[in-house]
């Protein structure tokens, strides 16, 4: 059985949905509170996949995901490193993405030796939406077919080009540090970008900037999700775990069905099983 650890911190709120998604994808989810993992950090290696779910860890008191990021650094730095280096899949959704970014696990570009070690690891941020508003709506993401991301490359092979699922966040505006976007694009580490809804039927990603509200938060270059260079760590703002049956789709009563967000979990589990 592929065991997935779903890490819960005070304020995490989409842990149960992540668990259902893992289960539906054929994995075995285990929700652990961060203090439980802290008691035995090495138990992380009993899992084949790690999910950092959405929510407001610690109330996002000092910026979204910030305090969870400091937990990841202060409490689990070594264990995380071993897990990631072993190529095991790590999925950070919304608050989990924010934490991965703010602890430097994403995008994980090589650090110039000159930089201050920790700060140089922080290469991009997710900050307050351009509207300064929390926003809950469905978005459509175009998949980068050339990305090495283990959660999506199989989908691209199947011809899947877009995935729809809701966003629900107030701090999802992706802003890269100087020169970072270009490097991410060059490495195909930009896995998912916000896309306009209209072209769903054709399955052809639209061209040009998505614009609001398709890009709900003002993210630079419509970035919705990125991976590390190895492709085994994915962070994204939208919630694939909230689209795991067709009746969650906002237009199911109009007869519309689309690729489920569940597929991202299925790919991750599938990949983990092969490790």
């Amino acid at each position: 059985m592929t065991r997935a650890l779903i890490l819960h911190a005070a304020g995490t709120n989409r842990d149960r949905e992540a668990a259902w998604a893992v289960e539906k994808a054929g994995g075995e989810p285990v929700i652990l509170h961060i203090s439980e993992l802290h008691e035995r950090p090495a138990s992380l290696h009993g899992f084949q996949m790690l999910v950092l779910p959405g929510g407001f860890s610690y109330g996002d008191a000092l910026g979204a995901g910030r305090l969870l990021a400091s937990d990841l650094r202060w409490l689990f730095e070594e264990e995380m490193a071993r897990f990631v280096d072993a190529g095991k899949p790590v999925l950070g959704i919304c608050n989990g993405f924010q934490a991965l970014l703010k602890s430097g696990w994403l995008p994980g570009l090589p650090v110039h030796p000159s930089g201050h070690q920790l700060d140089a690891r922080i290469q991009a941020t997710l900050t307050r939406n351009a509207s300064n508003r929390f926003e809950c709506r469905w978005v459509w993401m175009a998949l980068n077919p050339d990305s090495p991301c283990v959660f999506t490359r199989g989908l691209a092979r199947r011809g899947v080009s877009r995935i729809g699922c809701p966003v629900a966040h107030g701090e999802g505006r992706f802003i890269p540090g100087g020169g970072v976007l270009e490097r991410l694009q060059a490495n195909d580490q930009v896995v998912l970008t916000y896309d306009r809804d209209g072209a769903v039927a054709d399955g052809v990603p639209s061209r040009g900037p998505a614009g609001y509200p398709a890009n709900p938060n003002g993210s630079v270059a419509d970035v919705a999700g990125i991976c590390n260079g190895q492709g085994n760590v994915l962070g994204l703002m939208p919630h694939p775990e909230d689209h795991i049956v067709p009746w969650q789709h906002p237009r199911w009563t109009r007869g519309e069905r689309e690729e489920l967000g569940l597929s991202i979990f299925s790919e991750g589990i599938e990949y983990a099983r092969g490790l």
């Binding site: 989409r14 259902w20 508003r133 926003e135 809950c136 809701p166």
Partner: peptide
């Protein structure tokens, strides 16, 4: 107003 409330959480 409605979009400022998370109406999707819990799936």
């Amino acid at each position: 107003v409605i979009r400022r409330y998370d109406h999707e959480v819990q799936g």
